[in-house]
């Protein structure tokens, strides 16, 4: 399996191709529904004013996301009472819910990798070509196993979103993913969708 270090260069991300297994190491951040809506509303479309610690969190996110990786994950975390945080279970969540936001977030922050499950649609695929970036598929439900590749929790932002929705900064080693959407406009998900549609039509006609 090929090893890739975060932050990721444009050259490296362009060299990744659909179907390739990759082991990621470095610092990444989790973000899902609440985080994506917050980033887009507050700092990209600016439909709401920053409040509370919004500006501080934004400033902290920028260097992590530049050349970085965002992980669609709502972990189970131990040590909440002592703040000695440890990921217990941390598989991917369904990415398609971030389709309205992801492309804008990738362009705004120069995100190189998006990890999740289930794949994403045409807007994100276009952003992968432009950024450039790639969608990296983790194994859904393999939560205990994936948590073992999370070596340390470095911090957490927006814990008021709740544990699953907070943005956890994590150091990972050999985090296993498969490239399913690449910087060259190829999507394994679009291929499977089309093939399975034609198989369905045959079955329905039978």
């Amino acid at each position: 399996m090929r090893s890739v270090q975060i932050p990721i260069s444009d050259e490296t991300i362009r060299s990744l191709e659909v179907g390739e297994p990759v082991a990621l190491s470095g610092v990444m951040i989790t973000g899902r529904d609440a985080a994506h809506k917050w980033m887009v509303d507050t700092f990209i479309k600016k439909t709401r004013q920053p409040e509370g610690d919004d500006q501080q969190v934004y400033a902290a996110l920028k260097p992590i996301l530049a050349g970085g990786v965002i992980y669609h994950c709502g972990p189970v975390v131990a040590g909440l009472d002592t703040k000695d945080y440890r990921f217990v279970a941390a598989g991917p969540t369904t990415s398609s819910r971030e389709e309205p936001y992801q492309g804008d977030v990738m362009r705004h922050f120069n995100v190189k990798g998006v990890i999740g499950k289930g794949g994403m649609g045409p807007k994100t695929l276009a952003a992968c070509q432009e950024a450039p970036g790639a969608y990296l598929h983790a194994i859904g439900g393999a939560a205990s196993l994936i948590a073992q590749s999370v070596k340390r929790v470095l911090g957490v932002h927006k814990l008021d979103f709740g544990v699953p929705e907070a943005m956890w900064v994590i150091e990972v080693q050999d985090f296993p993913v498969v490239v399913t959407m690449d910087a060259h406009g190829r999507s394994q998900h679009a291929v499977i969708e089309a093939q399975s549609k034609s198989a369905l039509e045959k079955l329905l006609a039978a």
């Binding site: 189970v76 279970a89 941390a90 598989g91």
Partner: peptide, 9 residues
């Protein structure tokens, strides 16, 4: 390890 199979319990 008695840890959740999936983080989405």
């Amino acid at each position: 390890n008695s840890t959740p199979i999936c983080q989405d319990t």
